[in-house]
Amino acid sequence: MEQFSALLSSANLQWVLIGSLLLGFASGVIGSFVLLKKQSLISDAMAHAALPGVCIVYILFQTKTVPYLLTGAAVTSLIATQSIQTIVKWSRIKTDAAIGITLSVFFGLGIVLLTYIQQNATGNQAGLDSFIFGQAASLVKGDVQLIAAGALCLIILTALFFKEFKISIFDPQFAKGLGLPVTFFNAVLLFLVVAVVVIGIQMVGVVLIAALLITPPISARYWTDQLGWMTMLAGIFGAISGVSGAVLSTAIQNLPTGPIIVLSASVIFLFSLLFGTKKGLLLKGGRNA
């Protein structure tokens, strides 16, 4: 226990806490819109597709400077999204298979590049594979500050465009009629999703970051029908998952951060599924009885 409180008081961990809190909140909020657009699994493909981007930047520029790596991640994520749309538009392949193809092939490429780097690296190549599952403990202060600042920006942006997102997702035709640039807001939302995935992969990892976009908003749906409350609650659920994951994985040796964060979110989901006031199972059972 002493060890635990000592951990909590360390400056680095405080930053990790702030980072994971803001990241969790941002992904919950943005995930709410992703859920409404029915694009939950597309975000999973985007996350997996971030891996080759990180590797390509490392191979080309021999740098481990995080912002550069993340820029690479963002580029391949966007290419992945575009690929999914192209496949669906130009062939008889349906969206689900297009997502699966993109996700697995990009991730495969990422693994190929990662092993290439490991075989051929001239020195300090370690650490890139922590992008797969995330490792909060190995984050340096600069990384965490980047996550915190980035997440904060995303939260503010979402708050600013809240009304516009709401209308253009719920009824794009109507929004166009109102003169809203729906295409522009779709692009902004896409940017937000890519951004939250990219800043989150260091902590949660490419394999599981999508869970942070999917699970908190669904959990929130069990408590409210109002989009405003839903995004708020999803943000809070995300933040709780982020913080508990970061703390547990730092306190206990060998625990990977990403999976713990995701499990925390899953526990909140189970709780909401059972006890939620809007659609919870117990409530339903009670009503039917």
Binding site: L35, K38, S40, L41, D44, D96, V207, L208, A210, A211, I214, T215, I218, G258, P259, I260, V262, L263, S266, F269
Partner: peptide, 13 residues
């Protein structure tokens, strides 16, 4: 798709 997302990320994690 969200149902798939929740289930597999939870069990995999």
């Amino acid at each position: 798709d969200a149902a798939i997302g929740i289930v597999f990320t939870s069990l995999f994690a």
